[in-house]
Amino acid sequence: MGALNHKFNENILITSLDKLLNWSRSGSEWYFQFGLACCAIEMMSAAAARHDLERFGAMPRSSPRQADVMIVAGTVTLKMATRVKRLYEQMAEPKYVISMGSCANSGGPYWQHGYHVLKGVDQIVPVDIYIPGCPPRPEALIEGLLHLQKKMREEHILAKKED
């Protein structure tokens, strides 16, 4: 408590509601483990002991209802695309999508002759962060999550949205 010692009177903290909510949301990015292909293995490695995602507050959840951010890790095929859209719609607001790997970004190595590959998951869901790589290193995934934290801290989720 060194930095905060003697700074405030008697448990009163003055901040904006936006800042408080953004701080708590960015510190607990529960990700929807949507591993499809090879990038899923790097996502698992990122969650394991050496690269440890949990120290950033990112916990894997299997159900879309409990997740904040959907990490689309791997190739999205046309057969799978309808399911990706349905699961995205089942997540509760505020929600984010991270597209991990070149297959999810734009079709990856299968862009030329892949008759069954969706060329980029942003054709069906809105993407916030793109992580390049084939597969991206776990450190790259961590950088993507940190960028998302920065993005979250600048949002105003309580403000009325203009229609």
Binding site: L36, A37, T77, M80, R83, Y110, Q112, H113, G114
Partner: peptide
């Protein structure tokens, strides 16, 4: 079939050494 990425179609259109990855 949810991950059918047409490996065999790619192999028929790329050179032998390009199929390795």
């Amino acid at each position: 079939g949810y991950l059918h990425r047409s490996f065999e179609k790619h192999a028929e259109n790329l050179e032998y050494q390009q199929v390795t990855p």
